[in-house]
Design a protein around this nucleic acid. Structure first.
Length: 109
DNA sequence: TCAGTGACTGACC
DNA sequence: GGGTCAGCCACTG
């Protein structure tokens, strides 16, 4: 796994996000040892359009806001996907985000 | 080549 | 408690 590239690792972690859970760009970046490169995680998600298996909708910013929903096909597709998994969305923000937050550095160890 | 931009974050005031 | 600034790295014009 250490041989994987940064982007590949981002995809790997994103795929490991359990359904009904969400994480943040910074959490993934931190897990990859690039906590200050959260933007790269965002860019990886942008590039994830070529990676259908990457649940980019489960990745939100540090406060649980669906900042990237605009990048999905529909205006509310990201919210729909999350709600379909049991994640409540209120005003483009994950409800009870703190409890639903999935930290790869803790869960994956 | 340089400068601007972006699905972010932490620190500072 | 809320707004602003800088850092991070890749991509585009």
């Amino acid at each position: 796994m250490e041989e994987s590239n940064f982007f590949d690792k981002v995809y790997e972690v994103a795929k490991l996000i359990p359904p009904g859970r969400v994480t943040s760009y910074g959490a993934i970046a931190k897990y990859l040892g690039a906590a200050r490169s959260a933007r790269m995680v965002g860019w990886a998600m942008n590039n994830s359009h070529s990676m259908p298996s990457v649940p980019a909708h489960r990745v939100v910013n540090r406060v649980g806001v669906l900042t990237g929903k605009h990048h999905f096909d529909g205006t509310n597709l990201m919210q729909q996907l999350l709600e379909n998994e049991g994640v409540q969305i209120k005003d483009n923000q994950v409800v009870n985000f703190k409890s639903l937050f999935w930290d790869p550095s803790l869960e994956l160890l």
